[in-house]
Design a protein around this nucleic acid. Structure first.
Lengths: 190, 190
DNA sequence: TGTTAAAGTTACAGATGTGTCACTTATATT
DNA sequence: AATATAAGTGACACATCTGTAACTTTAACA
């Protein structure tokens, strides 16, 4: 009963991601996005009332996808395998963490009554809770130092993707060295 | 021969910093800044032709100040002291690194012929070069692992300030644990 | 083949930002 | 007290973004 759509949600989110990473929350506009999609601006308003709604929807989609892939960690046996899996996943999904940063900008400017606010606030906490189980395994297996706070361990690992590789060190070497620093530090053993 | 100024450059840069951190490059406007300074927008144009010029000037000021404080590292004897000094300085000047991130946004949108472009591009490299001397000391004193690339060591240390402390762990404990992870890792010794 | 309804477009009004210019204000110097 | 001059203002023209409403297009289906 209807005409064919010129674009689907996934395409839309892909472009939105690029624009958000390039321009940040404030620099993101419907005009920019409509141009990229080769669609009129008004068409976007058929699906989203405003940019806040579009961006929150997109964020939720992106984080849920990450969480979904993350859940595979539970199927792995032993802390070391889980650790490797986590680092590799994080580097496969680099942008997610930059987006979480942008998410905070969204939150601060959002109405208290905004429909998706709760859902968006809950997701990063879900992720932390989920990873806390992984930390627990590490500490129980006597692999992770017990006196280091869980929040720091998780934050530390997640943060490593954002280290700028100014000198273009090859990806494999880069990730390998990062794993080494995280696990045993950059100091020589005494 | 002239009337008294209502604001000075340092005040201006302080407000600019806050706005940049809050809104990012695209969200930063002269209107916003003028309001904060309680001055007319046109007054700002007496000093800066446009926001690019203001922001680059500000960035250069901020980075030079950081570099200036960093130079004190050379007066310290031995790698361990230098290491402690560096971490503490980074945590004292948290925002600098968030600003460097914003700086990249500025660059990409800047004319190739922009007056301060070279100066702004040079500063982060100066910082890296300066820190490379510190890395060299560490490797010569057999304190730092020699096979880890210098660029990663520097990037890793600088990045730690950006780890979000979601659970409000006390600053002293937080920094102490970070130092431990950086130096000896988060894994138990075998 | 005509009807229906979602998909998409064009065009408008209002808000906000930009850069500029003619103007006013304040103060150090003569 | 008069004057020169830098500091600051108000207001204009132009651009961009926002949200909406009236319109047209397309394709399924009755």
């Amino acid at each position: 009963m209807a005409r064919e759509r010129k674009f689907n949600t996934v395409e839309l989110f892909q472009e939105a991601k690029q624009l958000l990473l390039q321009h940040g929350y404030d620099g993101f506009t419907f005009s920019l996005l409509a141009d990229r999609m080769e669609v009129s601006r008004a068409a976007l308003y058929k699906y989203y009332d405003n940019k806040e709604e579009l961006i929150t929807d997109f964020m939720i989609y992106e984080m849920e996808e990450f969480l979904h892939e993350l859940r595979e960690i539970e199927t792995l046996e032993g802390f070391e395998r889980q650790f490797d899996f986590l680092i590799d996943l994080i580097f496969k999904k680099t942008e997610v963490h930059e987006l979480i940063r942008a998410a905070q900008q969204v939150m601060t400017r959002m109405d208290a009554a905004f429909p998706n606010k709760e859902k968006l606030e809950k997701l990063p906490l879900d992720m932390y809770k989920f990873l806390q189980k992984f930390i627990l395994v590490g500490k129980e297996e006597e692999k992770l130092k017990k006196h280091i706070p869980d929040g720091l361990i998780i934050g530390f690992i997640l943060q490593t993707v954002a280290i700028p590789n100014h000198f273009g060190i090859p990806k494999a070497e880069w990730i390998h060295s990062i794993k080494e620093i995280i696990s045993d530090g950059m100091f020589m053993n005494k």
